[in-house]
Structure formats: structure tokens, C-alpha cells
């Protein structure tokens, strides 16, 4: 369910490190909790964020969720396909439903994240 190459935050984001770039998305648990996603707002290219900043919002029919970045860095790519097809987030949250790619400034932030096994335990205990 939760890819082992990803790291996970308590706010239900995942990140995958590819050299100095991280891909960021929300987890299967998060998309399921939200329900059918109908609107995704992503940051601008080149925007810089600190750890824990809100980088976007995801809205389902009934709810809205803010997305926070667990890593500080600069946006180098956004998933344009997701803006056009928000349901990608429900269909493939850990794959085609990724949100942004960031060039992260410090690897220290990674220490606070969970691995797949820990995250799965966290979700089982309620995810709060």
C-alpha cells in the first residue's frame, strides 16, 4: 500500500528523494479521507518554502485540506496534469497524483519523517 522508497509526514504527505530533488504528494490514506478530489491548487514555479509551510490546497466535494511541505526548498516542477484532472489524486496518489517537485535545501528535515512501515502503523492507530 505505502511504497517503501517514500518517506511520510504526520500530516499525510509523502516525499520521494531523487538526488537533490524531492517529489511530494499526499498519501492513499489522505485521499481516501478527503473523498473525490475536485480542485487542486499548487504553488508557482520557483516559489521557496520553509519546512511546514502551506504549499497548496486540495478540495473534495465536501472538504478542503491544506498541503504542507515537510521539507524546505524551491519548487522546480508542478504536476500540471493534476490541475486539469484532479481525480488523478484519488486514482494514483503515490504515482500520477504527485503534486510538486522541489529542490530541497537541507536533508535534516528528512529525520523527522516516517518510513512506510512506521507510517502504516501511524495510520492504523488513527493517523492523528
Amino acid at each position: 500500500m505505502y511504497p517503501s522508497e517514500n518517506l511520510y509526514s504526520r500530516e499525510h504527505e509523502w516525499v520521494r528523494i531523487e538526488d537533490d530533488i524531492c517529489v511530494l504528494g499526499i498519501t492513499e490514506f489522505a485521499q481516501h479521507e478527503l473523498g473525490e478530489v475536485v480542485f487542486v491548487e499548487l504553488p508557482e514555479m520557483g516559489q521557496a518554502f520553509d519546512t511546514g509551510d502551506e504549499i497548496g490546497t486540495i478540495e473534495s466535494v465536501k472538504a478542503v485540506a491544506e498541503v504542507y511541505t515537510p521539507l524546505a526548498g524551491e519548487i522546480v516542477e508542478i504536476n500540471e496534469a493534476l490541475v486539469d484532472d484532479p481525480e488523478l489524486l484519488n486514482e494514483d496518489p503515490h504515482g500520477d497524483g504527485w503534486l510538486v517537485k522541489m529542490r530541497f535545501s537541507s536533508a535534516d528535515d528528512l529525520k523527522s519523517l516516517m518510513n512506510a512501515e512506521q507510517y502504516e502503523e501511524y495510520v492504523k492507530s488513527g493517523g492523528e
Binding site: G35, E36, V38, S60, V61, K62
Partner: peptide
């Protein structure tokens, strides 16, 4: 029940 198969 808030939803079964999905709101939409």
C-alpha cells in the same frame, strides 16, 4: 452515512 460509492 455521508457516502457509499462517492458523492459525485
Amino acid at each position: 452515512p455521508v457516502q457509499y460509492s462517492g458523492v459525485i
